[in-house]
Amino acid sequence: MFDYNFHWRPVMRSLPDLIDAAFLTLQVAVLAMILGIVIGLCLALIRLHKTGPLLWLASTWVELARNTPALFQLFFFGFGLGAFGLHLSPYMIVLAGLTFNCAGYLAENFRGGFQAVPDTQVRAARSLGMTAWQTYTRIVIPQVFRIVYHPITNQMVWAVLMSSLGMLVGFRELSGETQFFASRTFRIFEYFTVTAVIYYVIVKIILGASRLLAMRLFRY
């Protein structure tokens, strides 16, 4: 009925390589998130306050990022740009694709966050003589940050998991590396089981760290 023989030894032998690849996964996800947060914040502010071509650009970005498969977005930066003679390294393809996608999702989170801070907070700050910039950085952004904190955590998890698409553009992050070893040894099931556990552990660590940080940051 079930005559598959498990062979874990090759997996264990390449475990150090898998762990290395896991750090690469984490690195590209963290970088994509940092860039995504900065760009997403700009996109949200443009969508809230600007009109004209800038608004069109920001809206198109958000629409494409949210409404097309993430894999296609990766392919665009890989094969799409490749067709125009612009060849990015696999690392850059994944970083650009993830950043594009994260920025789009985060932009909408930020936009909701800004809309959730009442206008009267701005009025109160301005009535004290704060400049528009001071009001934004001292009063509005900290409140927005709390509102979007958990969505940002979700997006971080999503970025880690989504980076696995990298193996389809030849990037040897955790999934790509697993695929490489698995196809050499034909221990596909074993390799991907172990890799799934590694992903699981990474995500749990992110969620735990996020919760600890939230307890320190948000005492109100």
Binding site: P118, T120, Q121, A124, I139, R146
Partner: peptide, 20 residues
């Protein structure tokens, strides 16, 4: 205007304390 507003304290109906 920001300098002038320092002379003019304002208290609102919805008190608007900064929650954070």
């Amino acid at each position: 205007i920001n300098g002038l507003r320092q002379k003019l304290g304002m208290v609102f109906q919805q008190w608007n304390s900064f929650p954070h």
